[in-house]
Write a protein that binds this DNA or RNA. Structure first.
Length: 134
DNA sequence: TTTCTTACA
DNA sequence: TGTAAGTA
């Protein structure tokens, strides 16, 4: 049993190892260096730094970047993405403090997502005329 | 050669 | 966001 835990830990360690330079990340994610660095400025996906201050990304970082890319493709902006992560962090806290069932968590998650996406699209776009945050 | 920071058409 | 400049 303990052996399995070690295996899992090893995988996580490998996925957390920062060994990819930004150039590789660019090709893997189809994102420009400008964008990758910008997302870092915004507090999302902070890479390790090595040698002469060069960014080194891990496999997990790649996943994070791809996730951000998906959100962007869905029309969610930086503020919205940040909000989503803040909400997730908040949910992690709520989960410890309360005894929410999985369905409760799902309902909250769904509700928050609608508010976030509705808010972001409402500014400048007219896909929906709804004003969920009113 | 690649990446970094800063700044601007 | 793209891109140019000057480094490391």
């Amino acid at each position: 049993m303990q052996k399995e835990v070690n295996v899992m830990t090893e995988k996580e360690l490998q996925r957390s190892k920062s060994v990819l330079p930004i150039g590789t990340v660019m090709r893997l994610t189809e994102l420009s260096a400008r964008q990758i660095r910008y997302y870092e400025e915004q507090g999302l996906v902070i890479p390790k730094r090595t040698d002469g201050n060069r960014r080194m990304y891990s496999l997990n970082n790649i996943d994070q970047l791809l996730e951000i890319k998906d959100y962007l493709a869905e029309g969610i902006n930086m503020a919205g993405i940040k909000a989503i992560y803040e909400q997730q962090k908040k949910r992690a806290t709520e989960r410890r403090e309360d005894n929410l069932t999985d369905s409760d968590v799902r309902r909250i998650l769904h509700d928050e997502f609608l508010n976030i996406s509705g808010f972001d699209r409402g500014v400048g776009t007219s896909l929906h005329s709804q004003r969920p945050l009113d």
